[in-house]
């Protein structure tokens, strides 16, 4: 909505027979917003640098989107909105956890890894023929095992 576009599910092209497995290393930008309190987790949005510039252009306008600070700002705000709305849907948690300020990492061949063991749900969306990977809650399933409040929210999440 803020980028004036509607995302559809991203379907990756079928791998060629005998092709090598896709590397877990990432390139481009990853925006992160942490949740602390009744639920401890990390929401991330990842895409290529070109896709991030396109998104920022849609949000901020042509004149500013080539500024790397504006691109990071736009990605951080998008991630903030995803994390905030995710939290809002977990009614038992909305008033019991807080969001961190957004952080944006950019570069080539980096790997995001949680220190604590966690299960990662990742959803890929198609934005102008390029994928945007959204992970609404890196540690949700892990947190759900340890907190009564999180248990109920986990149930909401799966529906």
């Amino acid at each position: 909505m803020m980028a004036g576009t509607r995302l559809t599910p991203f379907v990756p092209p079928a791998a060629e027979p005998g092709a090598e497995a896709v590397s877990q290393e990432q390139s481009g930008l990853t925006a992160m917003v942490g949740t602390a309190g009744a639920l401890c987790s990390m929401t991330t949005i990842r895409c290529s640098s070109d896709t991030a510039i396109k998104l920022a252009t849609k949000m901020a306008g042509d004149e500013t989107a080539k500024d790397p600070n504006i691109v990071s700002d736009a990605m951080g705000e998008l991630c903030n909105m995803v994390a905030g709305n995710f939290k809002a849907k977990l009614t038992s948690l909305a008033d019991h956890c807080m969001l961190s300020v957004p952080t944006v990492t950019s570069g080539d061949n980096y790997v995001m890894q949680a220190v604590e063991p966690s299960e990662v749900l990742q959803v890929a969306f198609n934005f102008e023929a390029s994928p945007i990977y959204i992970s609404p809650n890196h540690a949700l399933l892990n947190a759900a095992k340890s907190s009564p409040a999180s248990r109920s929210s986990s149930s909401n999440f799966t529906h």
Partner: peptide, 23 residues
Amino acid sequence: TEGSEARVVEALSVGAKGYLRKP
């Protein structure tokens, strides 16, 4: 951005005339 009703209620109680939730 947050879904915290408590924050919204606090804002309204100290003088806000309304609120918008992003997006």
